[in-house]
């Protein structure tokens, strides 16, 4: 049917240099400094957790994914991001399981890359949070040596920790339960307790900013998130500084930085229009402030992003740009 001389193809005919694998591997590259920082502050154990999650994600993609999908790098991103949301002393088999669930149920079951509604890494984390609520809120104290593994990490598959460990606390947990604020400098450099990727706000911002500059992520999403969180928590803080944390604390504590730069901006699960991105970001920011201040859990970035992921199809529909020369709503679609 097709002749080699006359080839009819659909638009676009001019392509940019960016391709899915290129963007994805760039994201992977920009995550390397974040992983390194996590390793620096939390020790060898944190790197093992990230490695286990990535291994789970890659193996699942290899076994169940379509041919060649391993090379596009998206499974590696999912695994890395998932690992970064887990506590550094997390049992490795759970971490691995999280990677499997993230890819299998977060992505492949919807039909693979581009079809999934929810951020796969966060879906994996939500599964782990629901399945192992104690393990996922057990934070190391930070007083162990760099090479020291938490005894919980090596536990056999399906088994729990053999010993009770002394646990540390996250800045958000300290605030929620004991009303103790953490120093802003520590939050910025990353010398705090928490998940592996909840460390240095500075490093994460540099890495995310690189991606935004190269246009590999839509800067409006993190901007919308930070702006909303800052304004809303600032207003609450002005009303009652004893009850509500300061906006600086809200911005730099917990998983907000990692979530805003790397997870909310996932191309598949964020809106395609600019206005949609602003609304998307603002929604996440508002939900984060809502959950952190009035919810049962200290942290809410994961649920905020997942909830707004579910809104993305509507945001795309509502913010559809007008076709030139038509009125709103009568665009030929």
């Amino acid at each position: 049917m097709s002749s080699s001389r006359l080839l009819v193809t659909a638009s676009p005919h001019l392509r940019g240099p960016a391709s899915t694998p290129k963007i994805m591997w760039n994201v992977v590259g920009s995550l390397v400094p974040v992983v390194a920082t996590a390793g620096y502050f939390f020790g060898f154990g944190a790197l093992l957790v990230i490695a286990a999650a990535t291994l789970g994600a890659l193996l699942t993609e290899m076994v169940f994914g379509s041919k060649g999908s391993l090379g596009d790098g998206s499974a590696a991103i999912t695994g890395l991001l998932l690992g970064l949301t887990l506590p550094p002393g997390f049992p490795l088999w759970m971490s691995f399981l999280g990677g499997v669930v993230a890819i299998a149920f977060g992505k492949l079951i919807f039909g693979g890359l581009g079809q999934n509604m929810f951020n796969p890494a966060l879906l994996g984390r939500a599964f782990l949070q629901a399945a192992f609520p104690v393990a996922i809120t057990t934070w190391p104290t930070g007083e162990e040596g760099w090479w020291n593994l938490s005894p919980t990490q090596a536990s056999l598959p399906l088994m729990g920790a053999e010993v009770d460990t002394v646990t540390g606390a996250t800045p958000l947990g300290l605030w929620k339960f004991e009303r103790i604020a953490t120093d802003a400098v520590d939050l910025l450099t990353g010398a705090i307790g928490g998940s592996a990727g909840e460390t240095s706000a500075v490093v994460i911002t540099i890495c995310g900013g690189y991606l935004a500059l190269r246009n590999f992520l839509n800067w409006r999403i993190p901007a919308g998130i930070f702006l909303t969180v800052f304004v809303l928590s600032g207003a609450l803080w002005l009303i009652d500084a004893g009850r509500y944390p300061s906006p600086v604390f809200m911005l730099f504590s917990g998983g907000l930085m990692l979530g805003a730069w790397f997870m909310a901006t996932d191309m598949v699960t964020s809106p395609v229009t600019s206005r949609g991105c602003w609304i998307f970001g603002a929604g996440i920011g508002a939900l984060v402030v809502l959950i952190r201040n009035w919810g049962g859990l200290p942290e809410g970035v994961m649920y905020a992003i997942l909830l707004m992921n579910a809104m993305v199809p509507y945001l795309n529909q509502w913010t559809q740009p007008r076709v030139f020369g038509t009125r709103l709503g009568e665009a030929a679609s």
Partner: peptide, 9 residues
């Protein structure tokens, strides 16, 4: 065995 970590989900 007693050391099983339940999948509470």
């Amino acid at each position: 065995g007693s050391n099983y970590e339940p999948w509470i989900v």
